[in-house]
Amino acid sequence: MTAPALPDEPTAAGPAAPVLALDGLSVVLAARGREATILDGVSLALTPGETVALVGESGAGKTVLALAVMGLLPDGMRVTGGRIVLGGTDLLGASASALRGARGGAMAMIFQDPQSSLHPAFRVGAQVAEAIRTHQAGVSKADASAQAVELLRRVGIPQADARARDYPHQMSGGMRQRVMIAMAIANRPRLLIADEATTALDVTVQAQVLEVLKTAQQETGAAMLVVTHDLGVVASVADRVVVMYAGRIAESGPVDTVLTEPAHPYTRGLLAAVPRLDEAAPVQAIPGQPPSPFARPSGCAFRTRCPLADERCEAEDPVLVAFGADAGHAVACHHAGGPA
């Protein structure tokens, strides 16, 4: 590869067609006669093989974003605007059966809680095999079972042929999450979504499962959207990071840039809240709470907690615009890059 002169330039070869493109996605929750905007004009694209981390405090809308892509929004929520395009197909306009074909096929999701996400009454091998047979017509039961065992082996389950006959409750959390990963990659998806896939696990197991996830992604060449609270996870797996606040993107960009030179005061706050071994600086939590989607402040939603807030922030909604020298770095803040 002929290396470009500047290290900050994106590598050559031109932009590949995105696997997933969200364009101005908005989701509204209707509850007890009131409406709240949960996602507000979120745009995002993932190219093949790329890993994007989605971070933000609880309630930012990360899970809702993932579920919207899967077409699995909870009761009461609906998409009110924008587009979700997966490999050229507009999922919002797709028929129910086309959407079912994409779920577990071209896109697959791994959920947070391996305790409850597998069916308690079916053997894990059968649950993986079911994913195979749902999407690959003409695979016999026996072949699907054999493939399921192979998948379980690939995600690092020892004695996979015996463990395939286990029920979920006979497995540890880490093993169950491996089963979920096996199920997710069973049909070689082009998009893998992992929603806090390691949060519920023991710290020691987290790293292993993350490794399995990364390997699985590399083997399938899928794009991966990793939802996480853990900035350590971001640093170790992601190429790009998207920071969400109150249903909008606050900042996005290459991981190195965003983690080392955060431009949004919210991102800085998140980073300052991470305990670090190598720094003497005390951990500083962001003061206050994120706003309820039913009571969103005017202007910038973060201004009520922001050290840089002024009248402009109250009056004017900041939009996401390119920032700084690094390609792909964008920030939605009137004081982007301002005094830390």
Binding site: A102, G104, F111, S117, F122, E130, T134
Partner: peptide, 26 residues
């Protein structure tokens, strides 16, 4: 409303199979 039913849907199963196999079983 359970998580394992969401998993079944995320697998792309038909609603009939989600209800009659996964939902009814438990």
């Amino acid at each position: 409303h359970g998580d394992h039913i969401r998993t079944a849907r995320a697998k792309g199963l038909s609603e009939r199979r989600v209800v009659w196999k996964h939902g009814m079983r438990s």
